[in-house]
Structure formats: structure tokens, C-alpha cells
């Protein structure tokens, strides 16, 4: 039981990761692909953040009388990763707009029919 409940954060991460990846692969709509990609990235953010938690530890702000803190480093790292993720999403959306302008569609199979790419 402990294997499932004791490590529930990992199960959440794995679930989100699979949902994200599956969406990227299976959906033909480019926007849905981007959504899937974001979910996939977010799952990794969770992975990092939950890893940083120390059982019984307080938030990593120096306070009188507190001896045990959570590890702040993963949080900092993931702040960077979030920025990267936002940039990626923005760029992807910009690309989709351009694709819509020149193809008139954002469905993968229709684009493929138009010029056998993607």
C-alpha cells in the first residue's frame, strides 16, 4: 500500500506525463498538441518541486527556532524551467498563428494533404 499512497506525488507526475505525451502524439490539432506539451512539461515541474520537500521541513525562509527546511534549490531550478516553458509555448502559439495564416487550417492531416509535410 505504501508503494501507492506513500509515493502518491510520483503517481501524479507519471499520470500527467503520460496524459501530456499521449496528447502530443495522438491529437492532430496543433493547439491541442501544444496543450499536451505544456501538461507534459508541468508534470516535470511537479516532479522537481515535490522532490525538494523535506518531511517536516518548513518553508526555506530563515526563522528563529526552525532547524529543518525544505530544499529550495529545485524550486529555483524550476522557476527557470517555467520561464523556458512559457517561452516555448509562446513561440509554438506564434508558429500556429503563422501556419493558420498560410494554410488556413491547424489540423495536421489537412496540412499534410496540402503539401505533404509535417
Amino acid at each position: 500500500m505504501d508503494f501507492f499512497i506513500g509515493q502518491y506525488n510520483y503517481w501524479v507526475v507519471i499520470f500527467l506525463m503520460m496524459v501530456g505525451l499521449y496528447t502530443v502524439i495522438s491529437r492532430g490539432n496543433l493547439i491541442k498538441k501544444i496543450i499536451g506539451l505544456s501538461i507534459f512539461q508541468v508534470s516535470v515541474f511537479f516532479l522537481y518541486i515535490s522532490m525538494g520537500t523535506v518531511e517536516g521541513g518548513a518553508a526555506p525562509i530563515i526563522t528563529e527556532g526552525v532547524k529543518l527546511y525544505s530544499n529550495p534549490l529545485p524550486h529555483v531550478l524550476i522557476l527557470t524551467a517555467i520561464v523556458v516553458g512559457v517561452a516555448t509555448t509562446a513561440l509554438a502559439l506564434a508558429l500556429v498563428i503563422r501556419i493558420k495564416e498560410s494554410y488556413g487550417t491547424i489540423e495536421e492531416d489537412e496540412i499534410h494533404k496540402l503539401d505533404h509535410s509535417l
Binding site: L21, V24, L30, K33, L37, F40, Q41, V44, L47, Y48, M51, P74, A81, V84, T88, L91, A92, L95, V96, R98, I99, S102, Y103, I111, D115, S117, L118
Partner: peptide, 30 residues
Amino acid sequence: RQALTSAFQYLIMGTIGATFYLIGVGLIYS
């Protein structure tokens, strides 16, 4: 115009690759 779809395709693949790398780094760090 295929440049756009190629860039998009690369973006998806590239981001998945980079995220895989990130997962790996996280596990090693842990």
C-alpha cells in the same frame, strides 16, 4: 510555408527531448 510546419515539428520533438533531459537531471539530482 513548409518552413513553418517543419519548425513546429522540430519544436515538438525538441521540447520533448529537452524535457526528457530535464527529467533525467532531476532524477540524478534527487
